[in-house]
Design a protein around this nucleic acid. Structure first.
Lengths: 172, 172
DNA sequence: CTAACTGCAAACATTTTGCAACCTC
DNA sequence: GAGGTTGCAAAATGTTTGCAGTTAG
């Protein structure tokens, strides 16, 4: 039950991506590398559009479709996962072989915090089994008010200080 | 931890809906009544399109927009809730003041089972508090293989027998 | 009667796809 | 060089909105 740290080894993830590409006889291209690296570097929680903006810092000619297609590849090989927190467009997050995590989302400032709790995971498995299901994956999102949104002094709803990067906002 | 029964008192829900409408000085119309009643009767888990089909059984001239607008009203007054299980279009479910429930979804046949587990709820609250959050609501979806999908004899993945109505398919 | 509602079609927003030019392997 | 890739623009989805005609209160 602690916040997962979220700056995994980008190079290793890139390597996994390249492995996947060559296994599938697909090609590593400049665009894919830029997109994937930027994506991994943020630790995830990016919309297509946000990622496009980042990628274009490096190569302004990159188009929407390439970002979509690259994220689809990353999703296929398990290095990214698509999410839909609220309305509008999808959010992608890194989903490397690292441990699973769930989300705690502030409904005031949209700050997204990741956490993992083994006890909950265990119970989920138990519930699924009790219905005869074989649990494959799950999605848990907790929505509430973060300390700052509740007006607690010293509370650290990181919207202002952290918006630029690091832990990411999910909805914008 | 038992499957929630899911055919609430439709008339009462209709009444709540009408109360909301008159409170807001909005009007009860034939279309709204048809849509709302059909929606409540299924127990939820309907896409706009599925609901439109049902509504048109009763009045073929009902249009998309009216269904969207009616579901928005139902959402505003807390009688419906929008969900996005996977891709594509949103699914709406009844969300009366009745107890909360989570979802267990078969990734093979898309069957959706509802359940509630107090222990999990309690832990969620605890996690949120540990981060200084005030939990408002949450979303838990378990994805796995139902008994039938796993090939267990006597398993009851209700896709075939129940597709028509009753517990509803979430993704189609 | 008046203000809200409906159905249609057009507008929007997001994601996917077809294709000619262009790179990797 | 061949076959996958790119960027563009067009198409496909899913949802929202403007408007003229209709209806509930």
């Amino acid at each position: 039950m602690e916040a997962a740290t979220d700056e995994p080894d980008v190079d290793e993830l890139m390597e996994q991506f390249h492995d996947y590409l060559s296994k599938k006889q697909l090609k590593s291209t400049r665009q894919r590398d830029i997109i994937a690296r930027r994506f991994f570097s943020t630790g995830g929680h990016l919309s297509i559009e946000e990622l496009l903006v980042l990628a274009r810092e490096e190569n302004p000619r990159i188009g929407y479709a390439t970002v979509y297609r690259t994220l689809k590849l990353l999703t296929e090989c398990g290095l990214a996962a698509q999410r839909r927190f609220g309305e509008g467009q999808a959010i992608y997050e890194t989903a490397g072989d690292t441990e699973h995590h769930d989300h705690l989302i502030c409904i005031e400032c949209d700050f997204v915090l990741e956490f993992a709790n083994d006890e909950i995971e265990r119970l989920q498995d138990q519930v699924a089994r009790s219905f005869g299901f074989n649990l494959v994956r799950h999605k848990l999102e907790l929505y509430g008010l973060c300390p700052k949104a509740r007006g607690i002094k010293g509370g650290s709803c990181p919207r202002e200080e952290d918006e630029a990067r690091g832990d990411r906002v999910g909805l914008t």
